[in-house]
């Protein structure tokens, strides 16, 4: 099994699955903790609210299985909410404890509306590399990817930051720490650039 995509009822997984298929990688959709334990590469996608997502992951015993997967050094890719859930704490509709994989917080965009900036941050925006990352290898310089989110992560340790993106000021658009990788943008919606990122993950 090359790539396993976790279904916890929060996202359309089909587009992620088809995007992997498009780059020649078979991806299976899984939903049980024991399936996570068997996975080599785990993808945690996600749309929707932080609170509902983390509650569902805990209820179904998926949260501990994800932590086991990561602690064993196996490859992990979080997408959008799948990045945000890695934090210690999220501030969407109250204060909610996250998975605590990446020390840090998930906070709402505080942008200057005088600059005409809107929330959600929605559309195509550029990546600025902050370090080498295998996930983002061989991308065209200054390439754009598709974002749609009202919250963003603030890691406690800047060393995990793989890319930043400018929206009034720079925010963290992807992270990598060893086997743990996650993007705030949607590779599966980012046309050619996004497909390359998924191919990189599948090829590690």
């Amino acid at each position: 099994m090359s790539v396993a995509i976790l279904d916890y009822g929060m996202a359309n997984l089909r587009s992620v699955q088809k995007a992997f298929a498009c780059v020649g990688s078979e991806a299976v959709i899984i939903s049980r903790p024991e399936e996570i334990d068997r996975a080599e590469r785990l993808v945690l996608p996600g749309v929707g609210a932080f609170r509902d997502a983390i509650a569902t992951l805990r209820e179904r015993n998926l949260a501990e299985a994800i932590l086991r997967h990561i602690n064993r050094g196996k490859l992990f890719l979080g997408i959008c909410l799948g990045l945000q859930l890695l934090c210690d704490v999220g501030f969407e509709d109250g204060e909610h404890r996250g998975l605590g994989v990446i020390p840090g917080r998930c906070v709402r965009f505080d942008v200057d509306s005088a600059l005409g900036l809107k929330v959600p941050h929605m559309g195509w925006n550029q990546l600025t590399a902050r370090k080498e990352s295998r996930l983002l290898a061989d991308l065209p310089p200054g390439c754009s990817v598709y974002f749609v989110h009202g919250y963003h992560v603030v890691p406690a340790d800047a060393a995990v930051i793989a890319t930043e993106t400018d929206y009034g000021r720079p925010f963290v658009s992807s992270i990598q720490r060893d086997n743990v990788m996650a993007t705030q943008f949607h590779p599966e919606k980012s046309q050619r650039v996004g497909l390359k990122i998924l191919a990189n993950f599948a090829g590690m």
């Binding site: 089909r14 088809k18 598709y146 749609v148 919606k189 046309q191 996004g194």
Partner: peptide, 25 residues
């Protein structure tokens, strides 16, 4: 592999759910 919005005739939460589950962003 790009975002798609679907409009027109969405009357209920079920209508919306069906389209989002089908892959609409």
């Amino acid at each position: 592999f790009m975002p798609l919005t679907v409009g027109g005739g969405i009357r209920t939460l079920d209508d919306a759910t069906r389209l989002i589950q089908a892959g609409a962003e």
